Amino acid sequence: MTRKRIQIKKIDNISSRQVTFSKRRKGLFKKAQELSTLCDADIALIVFSATSKLFEYASSSMHQVIERHDRYSAIHRLDRPSIELQIESDSNNILRKKVEDKTRELRQMNGEDLQGLTLQELQKLEEHLKRSLTNVSKVKDAKFMQEISTFKRKD
């Protein structure tokens, strides 16, 4: 009997998502180790979980593989015009800034890093969380009603 194909999309259930992450991470690391052994390849694999935990695998030294990547990238960047490099650098800086902003925003929504906020920013955050909680409650209530009607139909 073969396994069923699953649709590749975000898993909604948090515990199922964590179990899947753990199993697939182990499988990914195993494949990386097999590829390294079979093909004598230098492999460095870095994974951050949704909870920001770091998982890494390196066939030799992570530091050496990253240095090798940096040297390779530097050599190949010399072949490209400097305007392209500037645009790429600017894009990377913009993306890095956006990621930092969104990370800070997420941490604040989780109740962390609140010390630097003004009273007005805290009030905006509180309102946002209240709206979010209201939306979650509405969806939860709708699911309860759906389950109740399902149970009634079964009876």
Rank of each mutant, 00 (worst) to 15 (best):
35 L>G: 02
142 A>Q: 15
4 K>I: 14
57 Y>V: 06
57 Y>G: 05
13 N>T: 04
100 E>H: 11
108 Q>A: 03
26 K>D: 10
50 A>T: 10
2 T>Q: 11
7 Q>P: 08
97 K>Q: 14
110 N>A: 08
92 N>A: 04
70 D>L: 06
69 H>V: 11
15 S>V: 06
13 N>R: 08
23 K>F: 03
128 H>T: 10
30 K>G: 03
61 S>Y: 08
129 L>C: 09
83 I>G: 02
78 L>Q: 03
105 E>T: 06
9 K>Y: 02
130 K>F: 11
116 G>P: 07
150 T>H: 15
146 Q>W: 06
137 S>F: 01
114 L>R: 02
4 K>N: 12
113 D>E: 15
109 M>E: 11
68 R>C: 06
17 R>W: 05
57 Y>I: 10
120 Q>P: 01
93 N>Q: 02
113 D>Q: 11
130 K>W: 07
11 I>N: 03
42 D>A: 13
85 L>G: 14
86 Q>V: 04
35 L>I: 04
138 K>P: 04
116 G>H: 15
15 S>C: 06
145 M>V: 03
113 D>P: 07
64 Q>H: 04
104 R>H: 12
18 Q>P: 01
131 R>I: 14
110 N>K: 14
104 R>V: 14
141 D>P: 07
117 L>V: 03
144 F>Q: 15
19 V>G: 03
44 A>I: 00
55 F>T: 08
33 Q>Y: 05
105 E>W: 10
11 I>F: 03
76 H>E: 04
66 I>Y: 02
42 D>I: 05
78 L>C: 01
154 K>P: 01
75 I>S: 03
130 K>A: 06
36 S>E: 00
85 L>N: 09
64 Q>E: 04
28 L>C: 08
116 G>R: 14
155 D>N: 13
19 V>Y: 11
46 I>D: 02
62 M>E: 09
84 E>V: 02
119 L>K: 15
69 H>F: 15
102 K>Y: 08
134 T>I: 11
6 I>R: 10
68 R>F: 09
72 Y>W: 00
70 D>G: 01
31 K>C: 11
